[in-house]
Simulated assay, not measured.
Amino acid sequence: MKLNELKPNPGSRRERKRVGRGPGGTDKTAGRGHKGQKSRSGAGKGQFFEGGRSTLLSRLPKRGFNHVGIEYALINLRDLERFEPGSTLDFADFIVGGLIKNGNKPIKLLASGEVTGAYTLHVDAASKSAIAKIEAAGGKVILTEEEQGSEEAKEA
């Protein structure tokens, strides 16, 4: 027996009914009744259609503030103690070190805690106080090119 000779058991597979494609299989109207919007291809008005009036979602009042911004994976200075002082840390190191669970978010460095070693950090964003603490310890914070570009645009 060869792979190209395999066939399903007789009666175990059935072709789907191609509704609305002529008389094939279900004769004439293909199970859609006679005329009208529901008998046409692409029929239907959507789940929230209410006969032409404004939908409930658009009639309800909109309240509050929806912040549509960048959601960062946050790393504090106290979290850096698990790495060797003097090491260069980037995205992959943070994932291996267990500081980041979701690899889809950009990384932001925050100043909570103290830092003892001189680290070189490659992050997407950092607070000014975090950068100051790292540089005071003899380290360096390298922001990604996108972030540096937006910082220069703000200063200009």
Rank of each mutant, 00 (worst) to 15 (best):
I142K: 04
I134D: 00
G46I: 11
E155A: 15
E84C: 02
I100P: 00
G139K: 00
R14K: 14
E81H: 14
L99P: 02
S41P: 12
K101P: 01
S54E: 15
H67G: 04
F48R: 13
S150M: 15
V115C: 04
T26W: 04
E114L: 10
P106M: 06
K105E: 05
K45G: 03
N102E: 14
V19H: 05
A111I: 06
K133T: 07
G44W: 02
K35N: 14
R63W: 02
G69I: 10
K28T: 11
E147T: 15
N104H: 09
K101N: 10
V19E: 03
K45Q: 14
V19C: 01
T26G: 07
E152K: 15
R32S: 07
V96C: 04
R32V: 07
R14D: 04
L56E: 11
L99T: 01
T88K: 03
Y72A: 02
F83G: 06
V96A: 13
D124V: 06
K133W: 02
G46V: 12
F49H: 15
A132T: 13
A132R: 14
G97Y: 03
L77M: 04
G25M: 04
G33H: 06
L3K: 12
K2T: 14
F49P: 01
P106W: 02
G36D: 08
E152L: 15
D27C: 07
E135C: 10
A137T: 10
G64L: 02
R53V: 14
A130K: 00
G86I: 06
G69Y: 05
R14A: 06
L109R: 00
F91H: 08
S58Q: 15
A43C: 15
R21V: 11
R82S: 08
L60K: 12
K17P: 03
S41H: 14
E155I: 08
L56M: 11
I134V: 15
E146K: 09
E15K: 14
Y119F: 15
E81I: 11
K101A: 12
D93T: 03
G31W: 09
E114Y: 06
R40C: 10
N102F: 08
N4R: 13
K140E: 08
L121Q: 03
G113R: 02
G20H: 02
H34G: 10
V19D: 02
I100M: 00
G138Q: 09
N66D: 11
P8S: 08
G139Y: 01
K28N: 11
T29M: 05
V19Q: 07
R40D: 05
K45I: 08
K133Q: 14
A136W: 05
E135Y: 01
V96F: 08
A130W: 02
L143C: 05
S12V: 08
G138A: 06
V123R: 01
R82F: 03
G103D: 08
E71K: 13
K128G: 13
G44M: 04
L80Y: 03
K140L: 10
G117C: 07
G103K: 08
G51T: 08
